[in-house]
């Protein structure tokens, strides 16, 4: 890598500025250590959160396209590679599928452009933070930066759905048998707990209408991770985090399961880097993960 840290245009999305502040702050702190900077877009809007599944719903693409235009303008002005980095899995999915749709069908792009003030040329490549760590930084290089002995943590990698599916359009990893989070946790030096429910759905937005069903689905995932010996779960998705974490307040459903903290992968990375995690909002989790770190005395033992 060059001496000057790479500056990558960054799209946060609504959740990152409200309920997932700890995700964003830990990701930014870690990026500084790794040697890149996430440069937030100046003028951004909500991406719409869910990509329209029906082909006739092109209006659903105007919001993500408007974000891609903003990123394209920025990259052209600053003469940097046309990449846009994201953290939130819903934003990643929506923007990535929009990128794919326009790559496949230029007519679609023309139609959407007709509704926008600023026209999109179609140059932006959407990347997830995790993808950037794997493909640009390299997990082997990441492993060399770890300051804390993480070998005592038994961590289950939880992928959920939208980070991986549909594979043809996202192309990040195998949706049935993914490895990217496993390899990330390996780089940190954690004990990786491979468990069958790693790609099962947590219930997603159904929490608005059928919270009991979401409790049950979350229970199945956490009970499975617990059975395989995990003491915490990492995810990249704020909605998975919320569903898995908040559902544990349902004491009837979770009667036979002790609380299991659900972390963003960057919160764990910050611990591995030996960073001060005070601004990473660990205290806002429903199941407090801090006792786990305190019990293991994670502060800056060298490897």
């Amino acid at each position: 890598m060059s001496d000057k840290p790479a500056r990558i245009p960054y799209y946060p999305g609504c959740t990152m500025k409200t309920k997932a502040l700890g995700f964003e702050r830990s990701a930014m702190d870690c990026a500084e250590i790794i040697g890149f900077e996430m440069d937030e877009l100046k003028d951004w809007n909500c991406c719409g959160a869910s990509y329209p599944l029906t082909k006739d719903n092109l209006m659903g693409l105007t919001a993500p396209t408007n974000i891609l235009v903003e990123a394209e303008r920025r990259c052209q002005k600053e003469e940097v590679d046309p990449n846009l980095i994201t953290l939130c899995v819903f934003c990643y999915n929506t923007l990535k599928r929009t990128e794919y749709a326009f790559g496949q069908d230029k007519k679609k792009l023309e139609t959407v452009n007709a509704f926008l003030d600023r026209k999109y040329e179609g140059s932006i490549r959407v990347v997830h933070y995790l993808e950037y760590l794997r493909d640009v930084i390299g997990f082997d290089n990441l492993a060399k930066m770890i300051k804390t002995d993480m070998s005592k943590y038994k961590v289950a990698p939880y992928y959920g759905c939208l980070l991986l599916k549909p594979q043809k359009e996202i192309g990040l990893d195998d949706p049935e048998d993914p490895v990217i989070l496993h390899n990330f946790l390996d780089a940190l030096g954690c004990k990786v707990v491979d468990f069958p429910a790693q790609v099962d759905c947590c219930g997603s937005y159904l929490v608005m209408r059928e919270p009991k069903k979401v409790s049950k689905l979350s229970y199945d995932i956490l009970a499975d991770a617990n059975e395989y010996g995990a003491e915490t779960l990492v995810t990249a998705c704020p909605l998975c985090q919320s569903n898995l974490d908040q559902s544990q307040s349902d004491k009837v459903q979770f009667a036979d399961l002790d609380g299991m903290p659900v972390l963003y992968f960057t919160q764990l990375l910050a611990v591995a880097f030996g960073l001060d995690t005070k601004t990473h909002k660990l205290e806002e989790h429903n199941i407090d993960p801090r006792p786990l770190f305190e019990a293991n005395g994670s502060d800056s033992e060298s490897k």
Partner: peptide, 26 residues
């Protein structure tokens, strides 16, 4: 879903992506 009778705690607690997706789907 009925906006008028929607659980206020849910709206306060949930990530924005859940609320926006829910509105789009329901």
């Amino acid at each position: 879903v009925n906006l008028e009778t929607m659980d206020r705690d849910f709206l306060a607690r949930s990530p924005q992506m859940a609320i926006i997706s829910g509105f789009r789907k329901f």
